[in-house]
Amino acid sequence: MSENLLEIRGLHKSYGNVEVLKGVDCTMKQGDVVSIIGSSGSGKTTMLRCINMLEEFQGGSISIDGEEIGYEMAGAQRRRKREKEIARQRALTGMAFQQFNLFPHMSAVGNVMLGLVKVKKMEKDAARTVSEKWLDRVGLLSRADHFPGQLSGGQQQRVAIARAIAMNPRLMLFDEVTSALDPELVNEVLQVIKSLAQDGMSMLLVTHEMRFAYEVSNRVIFMNQGLIGEEGNPRDMFHKPKSERLAEFLKTSSFA
């Protein structure tokens, strides 16, 4: 049993012949806020999706609180766990997507309630109370009965974050949550994430917002060609990059 919240060992992932992750190692402790940066195609989103078993992976292991995610050994044979088990493990992590992915046929509160009712088997009334609490937390209690089509992109993303957090996950995964937003809507979403971080929520973020990564995280990981290129605290990473690659990347990104 390790004391690490998240432990990734030798993670390998390929699509056909293309190797996307070439043996990634990474650990996180309770309360850590880790940003993953890197150019597109470096494998950062894929890594995040593996943690939530939205992608299969061919080698290595991922554990949350010491519990191995997705696969188990049957003798010498590595095999995928049963779907029910994987569904339960997915609920250990919460995920917010680039495209929000709100269920368009449910109101904001309905979106948040769905997992509580179907997965946590809560009573509807209790689920509603919890959902409203979280909608209030992201500043959208007044929009609880609005449908996704009636909300702005920033509001939709905040509902999506509330939907994930309401499941009380051990770790929140944010996958480029501001990339699909109009510039003027980015800030309201970042504020919500920041305040969750201040409350001690453990989170792993893939982001292109360098300024935000710098401010919010206590550790930054730079991914490069399917491997971790460099990692450290944000101050060192952004001001004193050790590798040529990271220096190059920072120069072309918006961080000034």
Binding site: M95, Q99, G115
Partner: peptide, 14 residues
């Protein structure tokens, strides 16, 4: 959109 299925998976739905 396939993202809706993934969002369902992510909150632990079967």
């Amino acid at each position: 959109p396939p993202g809706l299925r993934e969002a369902g998976l992510a909150i632990g739905l079967t």
